[in-house]
């Protein structure tokens, strides 16, 4: 975290650092939430004790994730250096700044909101509908990860890269643990889970190698956005990504 502290000292706006720190912490918390959910989900042998505590931890971590996400989003929009409207928080790919990569963040946020909202009314919704939505949590995590890697101003820092690697390792380990405990049955589902767990790190590594860790990513990041990306935004951005 020393890198961030140093950056905070040299940067132009405290809000911008709050955005980056909030995003990074939210990603760590989301990773912890998802990994815990994967690892303790399902039921394969009688388990005594601590079931309720683990469930409560999963829920509290998810609430904390949303708190830091709120910080991340509010500070990003409040920061006047990049011109983002409030709509960007919920409507994906509506931002002029790094349209695609920021849009991924909005998608992940929307998915998390859906998961959180349905969990709040789980008793009324019923198990089947709740669970159908809860599965979106599995999608939110990789989308958030690619948002972080693609938009993240700090992606080129080795500390940040180590954090991403740690996040991936934790989730992959959780999937393996779950598959190890699952035993026979539902072969197709287990195969898909295994393949997905293997694909995400590989694609992320390739992407990092191709994009954010190379010079000139700032311009390319804007270029990969949809037509709504404006050149005005890229000029703002140049000053930002050198940090």
């Amino acid at each position: 975290m020393t890198g961030i502290v140093q950056l905070a000292a040299s940067g132009p706006s405290p809000l911008w650092y709050a955005t980056r720190a909030g995003g990074t912490v939210a990603l760590l918390l989301l990773t912890a939430t998802v990994a815990l959910g994967i690892a303790v989900g399902g039921r394969y042998e009688p388990r005594r004790g601590a079931r309720f505590e683990i469930g409560a931890l999963h829920r509290n971590l998810s609430v904390l994730t949303l708190v830091f996400l709120a910080l991340h989003i509010v500070t990003a929009i409040a920061d006047t250096f990049v011109n983002l409207g409030w709509l960007v928080a919920v409507v994906p790919f509506a931002a002029s700044y790094r349209t695609f990569w920021l849009g991924l963040g909005t998608v992940a946020f929307d998915l998390m909101l859906a998961v959180a909202a349905t969990s709040a009314v789980r008793l009324r919704l019923g198990q089947r509908r709740w669970k159908a939505v809860h599965w979106l949590g599995y999608a939110a995590w990789p989308v958030a990860l690619f948002h972080a890697a693609g938009t993240g101003t700090d992606t080129r820092l080795s500390v940040q890269l180590a954090l991403y690697a740690g996040c991936v390792a934790v989730v992959v380990a959780a999937v393996w643990w779950r598959l190890y405990r699952a035993g026979p049955g539902r072969l197709a589902a287990r195969l898909w889970a295994g393949v997905a767990a293997a694909v995400v790190p590989v694609v992320l590594a390739m992407f990092l190698n191709w994009g954010p860790t190379q010079s000139g990513w700032a311009q390319r990041a804007d270029g990969t956005g949809s037509a709504s990306a404006t050149s005005a935004a890229s000029t703002f951005d140049n000053g930002r990504s050198v940090a």
Binding site: R43, P46, R48, F52
Partner: peptide
């Protein structure tokens, strides 16, 4: 599914 949370609570 025999998760056992109910017996804890």
């Amino acid at each position: 599914g025999g998760h056992g949370v109910c017996a804890e609570l």
